[in-house]
Design a binder for these strands. Structure first.
Lengths: 195, 195
DNA sequence: CAACAATGTATGCAGTGACAACAATGTTGT
DNA sequence: ACAACATTGTTGTCACTGCATACATTGTTG
């Protein structure tokens, strides 16, 4: 039977699902534990068993968010083939897609801000950075990039992140997005090209 | 006598000052109207006379924030002399200084997100963009940049913003900051240089 | 000096996150 | 099989928040 899918053993994942949806719809501010509990037909104290406080829920969201980001980036990479520039372009596009579709989640992922002891979140962020780094390393191996890999990698990451922020903050029209990605990639390649 | 500096006619500005400090100390989430009122020795309903709701206070903060950003950028510019690259470097450095010192404020300025009818905030953001644009135009006039000014300007802005976000989110060590600025400027100039 | 507007006060409402005591429901060791 | 236990969810409470309204005070002005 299992008339009720939740209410029994699935509360934790149900909360995460509902929270992610709520995040997408109303942003972090709007997300309310009590509201989630209500939606899931559960008492307002129930979430506490799974997440000691609100921040714990947000941390969990951020953590899984990084995981999903990583898989999406990898998917884009494998689809892009072996050449460096197409791979770069695909990665940038995929990242910004994620960042604009799940803006609130990404903000949450980043602004797990300064909070001491967000080890798990930090750890979850690793792969995405590694991926970025590997891409840079490939570019250098292919003789297309020069300079300190760490630095140029961070600058690239920053540019992507910034474009997403600008779009999400309505300071740039979404219709410009594709052009911006193109310009950013092109400039990056030219700017980091060996002399 | 005027024993009490506030409580009479200064509440509005006093609120803005206290709010900005609170923002710096605890971020937007932490900022509480009641807390501010308490600090200023005023009833918790008083702020309502000056800001109909919390968001109005935040909007006002964002607005003045853009103003201050603009003046700081201009100050950096005039101090940098007339040559393009030093001006560019100075602007980037000044922007990121602002962004890392007043992180919460900047976030607020940007994530006055999508909210319909934040005309004043949007208007206040204008000058900073204009300044950026003028800088690009100068670079082009000096024959140092090529390409669509709007696009490369946005990409530059995005890179700055992204670096600030990375630092503020503790995803990059602050000690790397100067090097990153240098790399970003250098790459930008090379990347947008005429062929 | 009386009418008026601006500013701040007092009180109450609904909503929230956190917390603790309790009940129900598996799970497990003997 | 059954008693002890752990997990999970419930209920009630507290302190806090933003918001709203009715009221008092004060300063300005006709």
């Amino acid at each position: 039977m299992t008339e009720r899918p939740y209410h029994h053993g699935q509360l934790r994942t149900a909360l995460l699902d509902a929270a992610e949806r709520s995040l997408r719809e109303g942003g972090e501010e709007q997300l309310s534990l009590r509201e989630l509990a209500r939606e899931l037909g559960v008492s307002h104290g129930a979430p506490r068993r799974h997440f000691p406080d609100r921040q714990a829920l947000l941390d969990a969201l951020a953590e899984t968010g990084f995981g999903r980001l990583d898989t999406q980036l990898r998917a884009a990479l494998t689809e892009a083939g072996d050449d460096f520039v197409p791979r770069l372009r695909a990665t940038v596009a995929a990242y910004i897609r994620f960042a604009t579709e799940d803006a609130a989640l990404l903000e949450l992922m980043f602004t797990s801000k300064h909070r001491p002891g967000a080890d798990r979140v930090a750890a979850a962020a690793g792969p995405a950075f590694t991926l970025m780094n590997d891409l840079i390393v490939q570019g250098q191996a292919a003789g297309e990039l020069a300079g300190d890999p760490e630095r140029i990698g961070i600058v690239l990451f920053a540019t992507m992140q910034g474009i997403a922020t600008l779009i999400n903050g309505d300071m740039v029209e979404p219709k410009l997005l594709d052009g911006l990605v193109e310009t950013a990639v092109e400039q990056f390649v030219r700017g980091a090209r060996p002399a």
